Amino acid sequence: MTIFSIIMAATWLIAGVCVLMVGIKAGQGTLAKNKLIGIRTPELLASEEAWFKGHKAASPYLKISSVPLFIGGIICLFADDDLIGWVSIPVVVLLTIMILISSKKAHSSIK
């Protein structure tokens, strides 16, 4: 375990916690409309009702989005420095796909 693997593991794990917390707060209906966090599309920002309804629908997918981050963080603890980049690619791809799916679910719920 090197300092690089520790930094990457901490980065992925902290990001996973942040994404999970957004998913939990969205599901509880406590994710207030803001300028930084959440699915920030014109449709969801149009009203408070759209914001809460869309995020509630996207909540399960947002929570699942944290899983690749946690897995990537754990793998980084045990992987050689040469493999960490290869671990990061599927983590980012899976995260992006899950976020896009959650955005689509949010939009379909407000239509």
Score class of each variant (00 low, 15 high):
residue 4 F to P: 02
residue 83 L to G: 10
residue 52 F to W: 13
residue 55 H to L: 02
residue 8 M to R: 03
residue 84 I to N: 09
residue 74 I to E: 08
residue 26 A to S: 11
residue 27 G to K: 06
residue 17 V to R: 05
residue 39 I to W: 01
residue 60 P to S: 03
residue 48 E to W: 03
residue 106 A to R: 11
residue 62 L to D: 07
residue 8 M to S: 01
residue 87 V to Y: 08
residue 31 L to W: 00
residue 60 P to M: 02
residue 86 W to D: 10
residue 3 I to C: 03
residue 64 I to L: 14
residue 52 F to D: 13
residue 3 I to R: 13
residue 9 A to Q: 04
residue 42 P to G: 09
residue 16 G to A: 07
residue 53 K to P: 05
residue 47 S to V: 14
residue 51 W to T: 00
residue 59 S to A: 15
residue 23 G to L: 09
residue 79 A to H: 03
residue 25 K to D: 14
residue 61 Y to G: 10
residue 23 G to F: 05
residue 53 K to S: 06
residue 68 P to H: 03
residue 86 W to P: 00
residue 20 L to K: 01
residue 4 F to L: 15
residue 107 H to E: 06
residue 111 K to F: 10
residue 102 S to Y: 12
residue 3 I to G: 12
residue 77 L to V: 07
residue 15 A to Q: 09
residue 68 P to D: 04
residue 25 K to Y: 15
residue 40 R to E: 03
residue 25 K to S: 05
residue 48 E to A: 02
residue 62 L to C: 13
residue 12 W to H: 12
residue 20 L to H: 00
residue 78 F to S: 15
residue 90 P to Y: 03
residue 96 T to K: 06
residue 106 A to F: 14
residue 21 M to K: 10
residue 58 A to C: 12
residue 40 R to C: 09
residue 2 T to W: 05
residue 92 V to D: 05
residue 92 V to L: 09
residue 41 T to N: 11
residue 84 I to V: 12
residue 49 E to L: 11
residue 106 A to K: 09
residue 70 F to E: 07
residue 42 P to W: 04
residue 80 D to K: 13
residue 68 P to W: 00
residue 85 G to P: 07
residue 16 G to C: 01
residue 25 K to C: 11
residue 73 G to H: 01
residue 15 A to W: 13
residue 30 T to H: 15
residue 59 S to M: 04
residue 48 E to I: 02
residue 105 K to M: 12
residue 58 A to P: 12
residue 85 G to N: 11
residue 13 L to P: 01
residue 91 V to D: 01
residue 47 S to Y: 08
residue 6 I to R: 10
residue 58 A to S: 04
residue 79 A to W: 04
residue 80 D to E: 13
residue 5 S to N: 12
residue 41 T to E: 11
residue 48 E to F: 03
residue 75 I to E: 01
residue 22 V to L: 15
